[in-house]
């Protein structure tokens, strides 16, 4: 086994260059090291100017997502050993404009996330004295899978539709909309449907399915979108066939 591996890291320094370049670093390989440890080694020992995002090192914060050998992964959860003998190519996530090196601009995603109201919406809030909104384990199980999302944006990076049609609201936002729609305490499904029943919402998706493949938390956004299409269709035909039904 080799003691070092070459990491080809995308560099983009807008004050110096108009196009990104790749810079190679020789990084020692240790059995327990993740890609993120390799990047930290580069920043600490070889070139302190390398920019990238990370925080928790344990697959919870969702900030260290990058393209490793062309595949969107959490760099804190990908063993360097699994990619030997290398070289290992590290690039920023696809689909987001690059600000510097491995850092993408996620403003677009943040706006889309807010648009689907990823929080419990009530028509009328219950007074605090009346206590909590109770929920059974079965009701929890309805949406639990979708609540595992850590907003790491790997699904956006895997989705070709998001890159082709930047208006597409995207996998994670739709999965999170579904997470709240399926929550027994929530009453905001209709408001979310108004946002999502557009072409840029669920209908833009053609089920490439890669979002669910790369999801590190098994959220299955592709499945969430298909379920949403079914319920939007059922909803539509109900409102056409039974127009007297309350909106």
């Amino acid at each position: 086994m080799s003691d070092t591996v070459t990491m080809e890291v995308l560099r983009y320094r807008p004050e110096e260059e108009t196009e990104p370049t790749y810079e190679s670093f020789e990084v020692p390989v240790q059995p327990e090291w993740m890609i993120l440890d390799g990047l930290n080694h580069i920043k600490d020992q070889l070139d302190g100017s390398l920019s990238y995002r990370w925080a928790c090192r344990m697959g919870v914060c969702g900030s260290c997502g990058m393209l490793v050998n062309g595949r969107p992964v959490l760099t804190c959860a990908t063993y360097m050993e699994s990619l030997l003998p290398g070289p290992i190519r590290v690039e920023p996530l696809r689909g987001f404009p690059v600000i510097r090196d491995l850092v993408g601009d996620i403003t677009d995603f943040m706006g889309k996330l807010a648009a689907v109201k990823p929080y419990i919406v009530r028509e009328e809030e219950k007074p605090v004295e009346e206590g909590e909104y109770l929920q059974t384990p079965e009701e929890l199980a309805e949406y639990k899978q979708y609540s595992m999302c850590i907003n790491c944006m790997l699904c956006y990076s895997a989705c070709p539709i998001y890159r082709i049609e930047p208006d597409f609201i995207g996998p994670a936002a739709i999965a999170l909309a579904q997470r709240y729609n399926l929550d027994s305490r929530d009453e905001g499904a209709q408001e979310r449907m108004d946002v999502l029943s557009q072409h840029a919402g669920i209908w833009g998706c053609t089920l490439v399915g890669e979002c669910s493949e790369v999801c590190p938390k098994d959220v299955d956004p592709a499945g969430a979108i298909q379920r949403y299409k079914v319920s939007a269709t059922v909803d539509f035909f109900k409102s056409v066939l039974m127009p007297w039904r309350k909106e």
Binding site: Y12, P14, E15, E19, P20, P97, I99, P160
Partner: peptide
């Protein structure tokens, strides 16, 4: 040096989809 660069203003690099 990149002549188009203005300090404190982001200069994004956007990849085109082939």
């Amino acid at each position: 040096m990149n002549p188009d660069y203005r300090p404190y203003h982001p200069k994004w690099f956007r990849r085109r989809v082939p």
